[in-house]
């Protein structure tokens, strides 16, 4: 599998580490409800088809990416930089 890192270019999956589901949203800091935190930490969807996932280019630039991957075909339809330098944050 090849992931196209926005910083480094297309690189093989072995250079990356899988982090996890990119769709879950961290509860606000002042949220002290056990259930919302438990859901955030433990509950995951296992969608068939397109899924948004966080990957880190840990063997190279270390940037964290949001990868849109089809869980059936492994086809990657999008890679976005996550974090302070991402398009979304700007």
């Amino acid at each position: 599998m090849i992931i196209n890192c926005p910083i480094c270019g297309p690189r093989e999956a072995a250079e990356y580490s899988y982090i996890g589901d990119a769709t879950r949203v961290r509860p606000e800091a002042d949220n002290i409800d056990l259930n919302s935190w438990s859901d955030y930490v433990h509950q995951r969807q296992n969608p068939r088809g397109n899924h948004h996932e966080h990957w880190q280019h840990s063997g190279a630039c270390r940037s964290i990416l949001c990868v849109t991957r089809d869980t059936l075909s492994h086809a990657i339809s999008g890679v976005k930089l996550v974090g302070p330098y991402s398009e979304d944050t700007k």
Partner: peptide, 14 residues
């Protein structure tokens, strides 16, 4: 290190 990088990029980019 990865734990900190994830938090800074994913959860607290500001």
């Amino acid at each position: 290190l990865s734990h900190m990088e994830q938090l800074l990029n994913i959860d607290w980019p500001s």
